[in-house]
Simulated scan of single mutants.
Amino acid sequence: MSDLQKIRERIYKEEKIDQVLEALGCWGIGTEQGGKLFVAGLPDGDNQRSVQIKNTPSLTSNIRSKGITGTIFDVVSYILYEADTEEARKSSLSKSKFWLCNKLQYLEYIDDFYKLTAEKEKPQPNKWLHKLQQKRKKEELQSAENEILSENILEQYGATPYLGWYNEGLSIKTQKLFGVGIDVRSDRITFPVHNRHGQLIGIKGRYCGDNPIIEDKYKYIYIHPCNKSIEFYNLHRALPHIKELKEAIVVEGGKTTWYLTQWGFRNCISIEGDSMSEEQLILLKTLGLDVKFIFAYDKDKNAEFVSKEAARLKGRLKYGVFDTKGLLKEKDSPTDKGKEIWESLYQNKFKIR
């Protein structure tokens, strides 16, 4: 068996097709035919199904929009080395092999010539240490967990819908669904925070008193603190709908998810901030290759900010909700002006590369 065959079979067995496509800069990576076919868009293309790789040991591949047929090596040759003819792809085969083996750390298959070339061009004496640190960091992120609180804690806050939010349009039914209560000691409307498994990990409070300093600087605080950066608020409720719709709407604040849920958009989750952590990025990737992501940030985040934030989630189909018609004001969330405005923004979302 040739090295090329061994490499293809190893990529298949180790389930690294999506990793290769992501490293090539492809977008909208997903599967079809019950996982038997990987599809993606070319880095500079508009067709989400242009690149197709069969999930078999041979890794038979096509770039449909360019009329290219071959294997995963031909996909690499076209994207990285602009090999748009069969002759050019044959000529760049060694470079494509080297690139793949280097990316996937299949170093035993790299030709001696290219080994020497790589060592001369990029001497990295501490490369092993950097990789070890990256691996440890990822393991730490994946193993981090919040302390689980007893559900009995909620009894001291009760189930007390807030009239002010009701007058704004947040129904009593929705407030009960999200566990809205009250902490009379701190003049705060409360609501529970759960992890991805639906376990209670914190209580958040929104100030409703008449002290302007507290209202300005401490509007929201955690009465029972938790590490919000390793979870998405509302993920436990949204997950079944995300899996069904193959779509996740990512917003900044928990209250935005309440309105979206009330309006039928139950596939929504909140960062609880304006920038995703590394753990949150890992969580998004676990939702599946075929899930598309809609980033609907507040008005004060411009298109450049949202695009850069979304670009950190590599290899997935991404859209941004941008207010290009002046429908929102200043720091409005995308739900602050009502259901009709939200639906207009959602229907006119833009693809992010």
Rank of each mutant, 00 (worst) to 15 (best):
I148D: 07
I53K: 00
Q105P: 02
K103H: 10
D300L: 00
E278L: 09
Q142C: 13
G205M: 05
E121H: 10
G25V: 00
V184K: 06
R89N: 03
G338S: 04
S2P: 03
L104P: 00
G30C: 08
I189W: 14
Q134C: 04
I201W: 09
L345A: 09
K329F: 07
G320P: 15
S333V: 00
G179H: 01
K246S: 13
E343A: 04
P240K: 00
L283T: 02
D187C: 09
D84R: 15
E82V: 01
D46Y: 15
Y114P: 07
K135I: 05
Y220N: 05
T117V: 14
T286P: 05
S94Y: 11
G202Y: 02
E108C: 11
Q142D: 04
Y109D: 05
R8M: 12
L289F: 07
I172T: 03
E22C: 09
K6V: 13
D3S: 12
Y114N: 13
E119S: 12
F232G: 06
Q156A: 02
N62T: 08
Q347T: 15
E155G: 04
A238T: 10
I63Y: 15
S344A: 05
E278R: 10
T261M: 02
N234W: 04
Y297M: 15
E330K: 06
S94W: 13
D3P: 01
Q175V: 06
P43T: 00
F293N: 07
L104D: 01
A23T: 08
S94K: 15
